[in-house]
Computed example of a mutant assay.
Amino acid sequence: MDVKRAMDIFNDKATIAVQLDGEDPVWIEHVDEVHGMATVQVGSRPTNTHTVSVDRLAEVEKL
C-alpha cells in the first residue's frame, strides 16, 4: 500500500479491511506521511499496536 491510500483509509468514515503482511487484520491508528510509516492496532486489543512501513499493509479485496 502507498502512503496516500493509507491516509485515505485512515480518513474514511467507512470500515475498510486492512491486513499486515497479508495475514493479521489491523486498524490504522495514525499515518506518518513524511516517513511512510503507520501505527496500527493488531486484532481487537487497543494496547497491541505496532509502527510499520505502509508497504507492509494491504487492503483486503471485497468479494
Rank of each mutant, 00 (worst) to 15 (best):
V42R: 01
D2N: 14
T49D: 12
D12N: 14
N48H: 14
L63D: 05
K4L: 12
V40E: 00
G22N: 08
E29D: 10
G43E: 08
I16A: 05
S44V: 07
D21G: 06
H35M: 08
I9Y: 01
K62E: 04
K13A: 14
M37R: 11
D24N: 11
E59A: 01
M1E: 10
T39R: 01
F10C: 04
D32F: 13
V40N: 01
V40D: 00
L57A: 02
M7S: 09
D12M: 05
E23A: 12
D21V: 09
V40L: 01
V34C: 11
E33P: 10
A6N: 09
V34P: 09
M37D: 02
E23W: 14
A17C: 07
D55C: 02
D2G: 10
K13Q: 15
D2W: 02
I16V: 14
A38I: 02
N11T: 06
D12I: 00
V54Q: 02
V31R: 03
E33K: 08
Q41K: 11
M7D: 09
G22T: 07
W27S: 15
E61R: 10
N48E: 13
A58G: 09
R56S: 00
K4R: 15
D8L: 09
M1Q: 11
M37C: 07
Q41T: 12
F10T: 03
S44E: 15
A58S: 12
L63Q: 15
V40T: 04
M7Y: 10
V60W: 03
T15D: 15
A38F: 01
M37K: 13
A58P: 02
T51A: 07
E59S: 01
V42L: 04
T15K: 12
S53R: 02
T51D: 05
R56G: 00
K4H: 14
E23Y: 14
K4Y: 14
V60M: 07
S53V: 04
H30G: 11
E33A: 14
I16D: 04
M7F: 12
A6D: 09
V3Y: 06
N48C: 13
T47P: 03
V42T: 03
H30Q: 15
